[in-house]
Design a binder for these strands. Structure first.
Lengths: 164, 164
DNA sequence: CGCAACTAAGTTGTGCACGATCTAATCGCG
DNA sequence: CGCGATTAGATCGTGCACAACTTAGTTGCG
């Protein structure tokens, strides 16, 4: 469990400006390191990391709209639109206007998009191994990250009147 | 402690392709959410988030080379070079070739770069409040993220025959 | 019906992030 | 000394990420 051998959790000052005291930096560095770890695996699938996340969402539920994908991944349409264009150019998805609401665009997997899922099954085990966390550490990390995400997203922008 | 009221830590299959089971997605979403949380504060300082991290490193130790900054932040020169140019254009740092090794570039704070530190002291408390983690949760998160970063960075890129 | 308000995508501009490549300075070794 | 190898930065191309804006379709209300 304690493979870092850090029985003493150093107590940073609450207002420290030291880089190593910042949770934000640990988060930022970890996120890029993990993405870099995915890169060689995803290269073989012809996907970038955000494209992989979009594919995960579609493999879970096909036919989502751009808006729904944005909700699931917390990404703006200005990020998703070009990304989806590239996935469409790669032949993995098709975009179609919804007949009952022409504003909305449904994203559907093509045959090769669906087929890619089987090759993608090899990815999570390799990553899980590289991450080297125990199941408990993995679960704790996910819990804390979700809590953090919820908290900062809930926060109202710099207004003292937090009404919940 | 249990402010998320999640007494049941769902046990994901080790090879799951569900988006919500992926630690990588929790990490990616949290990283962007935290960055977004910094944005309005850093806007007032005229900094982007990566620029803020560079400034933290320089406030901690002025006169680092581009290489040393890259080591501290785990960023390539192709990321830092343009970023430092923008900081120089903003009048916060100066870049000078090292006399004893003309290949190396030393980055030094200007007066206004140094002065900005005082205004930056207001940032961490606001962020800490927005994150809403207990000191224990904060420490645990940092520990796990560092462990994760170390693990995935240590991992060799899956090729047995590296002739580097 | 007519039209303003709203909504879903897409476009544009700025700034990372990184691999690949380039240039220039330095070092190593005979 | 000469020249290949190494090293530090910088440049270029691709792909996010997001704010601000535009376009097009839909809805609500008199």
């Amino acid at each position: 469990m304690d493979q870092a051998a850090h029985p003493e959790p150093e107590a940073p000052a609450p207002g420290s400006l030291l880089l190593q005291d910042q949770l934000c930096f640990a988060l930022y560095a970890a996120s890029r390191a993990v993405t870099a770890c995915y890169r060689p695996l995803l290269d073989e699938l012809g996907l970038t990391y955000p494209q992989y996340l979009v594919m995960l969402a579609l493999w879970e539920q096909d036919g989502l709209s751009v808006r729904e994908l944005g909700g699931a991944l917390q990404l703006e349409s200005s990020t998703l639109s070009p990304l989806l264009k590239r996935l469409e150019a790669a032949g993995l998805v098709r975009r179609e206007r919804r007949p009952d609401d022409e504003r909305s665009v449904t994203v559907r997997l093509t045959g090769s998009g669906t087929a890619l899922r089987e090759r993608a099954r090899a990815v999570p085990p390799v990553i899980g191994d590289a991450m080297g966390l125990t199941p408990e550490q993995d679960a704790t990390a996910k819990q804390l990250l979700r809590l953090l995400t919820t908290n900062v997203a809930t926060e109202q922008p710099a207004d003292a009147g937090r009404h919940g």
